[in-house]
Each structure stands twice: as C-alpha cells, then as structure tokens.
Simulated scan of single mutants.
Amino acid sequence: MNRLWTLLTYLHSLAGPGVMLLYPLYASVVAIESASKVDDEQWLAYWILYSFLTLMEMLLLPLLEWIPIWYDLKLAFVAWLVLPQFRGAAFIYEKFVREKVIYKYGGAHKSPKSKNKFVDFVATNKVSMCVFVVNFFSN
C-alpha cells in the first residue's frame, strides 16, 4: 500500500506541470502553425490567465498556505482553462476582458468605434500603466 501511495503522490506532483505547462506549450505551438485564429485566441488567453494566476499566487502565498486543497483547486481550474472541450480560457477572456469597460489609472477611456477596449486601453495609456505598476510594487 505504501508503494501505491508513493506512486499516486508522484503522479499527482507531475500532473501540475503536465497540465499547466507541457500540454499548453505543445498546444500553443500547434496553434501557431495552424491557419485558424480560434485556437490562437484560446492559447493567448490561457497564457495571460496563467500568468495572472501565478502572480496572484505569489502575492497571496501566506493566505493560500492555509488552504490545504489549494493545489488541487488550482489544478482543476487550470484543467478547465486548458481542456479543448471547455475552452475555459477563451470563455473568461470573452466574458470578463473583451466585454467589460476597462478603466485606466486616473480616469476612464471609452472608444465608441473600437471593439477591443483592452488593447486600446493598453496602447493609449502606457505611461499611466507604468506609473501604476511602479506605485503598486514600490509599496
């Protein structure tokens, strides 16, 4: 029974890198080589969300250490983002980034002609974003 438990623990520890990094890396390369834009959007959205999740995990590590099943919850969430049956990353991008109005640091930017508000926000407010990031991390 100890060997079975050791094997399960080992497989569990390999599941994270496999689901969170190896498969998405492979799928991203396949998406770049394909002619379809749909898979490109899925994998770009995945890498944005994965980076954000990793950053938040680093910032909130003292709190997350108190949640014993955090790694399992993260693994399940990332599996939902990654699996092509769900396309979770593209879903979150569509619902929460593309459709919402993005407020810039110090005011609101609304472009009535543009469909992609996030790109407009970042492209027109680079200085404000830099000031925000420097102020955020200097405290």
Rank of each mutant, 00 (worst) to 15 (best):
E65R: 15
E99R: 15
F77M: 10
G88P: 05
V134P: 02
L75I: 05
I102T: 10
L11Y: 09
A79C: 07
V122L: 09
Y50I: 01
L7E: 11
G18Q: 05
L25K: 02
V134A: 15
M56W: 08
W47N: 05
D39R: 07
G107Y: 09
A15G: 04
W70H: 15
S111G: 10
K100N: 09
F52N: 01
G18H: 03
G106V: 00
L81A: 01
A35V: 13
D40S: 06
G106T: 04
S34I: 03
A31S: 14
F86T: 13
V19S: 00
P24M: 06
V38N: 05
L61R: 13
K37V: 10
N139Q: 13
V134N: 09
S138L: 13
Y26A: 03
H12T: 11
M1S: 15
I69K: 04
L55V: 07
S34G: 05
A108R: 14
E41R: 14
F52E: 02
V29F: 12
F91C: 06
N125V: 08
W70K: 12
A123G: 01
S51C: 07
C130T: 15
L14N: 09
F121C: 11
K37C: 02
L81V: 02
L55R: 02
V119P: 02
M58H: 07
V38R: 07
F136S: 15
K126A: 12
S114K: 11
V82L: 00
V101W: 05
V82R: 01
L75K: 08
S138R: 15
L83T: 06
E65T: 08
W43P: 00
D120E: 13
A123D: 13
G18M: 06
K115N: 14
I48T: 06
Y50F: 11
V133S: 06
Y26D: 00
A27M: 01
I92N: 02
K100R: 13
T54R: 09
L61Y: 12
S28I: 01
L8A: 15
V131Q: 15
L75G: 03
D120N: 11
Y93G: 03
E94K: 12
F96H: 03
V97W: 10
L44R: 06
A35P: 00
K113C: 09
A76Y: 12
Y10E: 11
E94A: 13
E65C: 08
E65V: 10
K95Y: 10
K74Y: 06
P112S: 06
A79M: 03
F52R: 00
H109T: 06
V122R: 03
N125I: 02
P84L: 04
L63M: 10
L64I: 08
L81R: 00
F136M: 12
I67R: 08
I32P: 01
L81C: 00
N2F: 14
N125Q: 11
A123V: 14
N125C: 04
L61I: 10
L7H: 12
Y23S: 00
R3E: 15
I92F: 02
L44Y: 04
L64C: 03
G106Q: 03
W66F: 09
L81K: 01
L8W: 10
E94F: 04
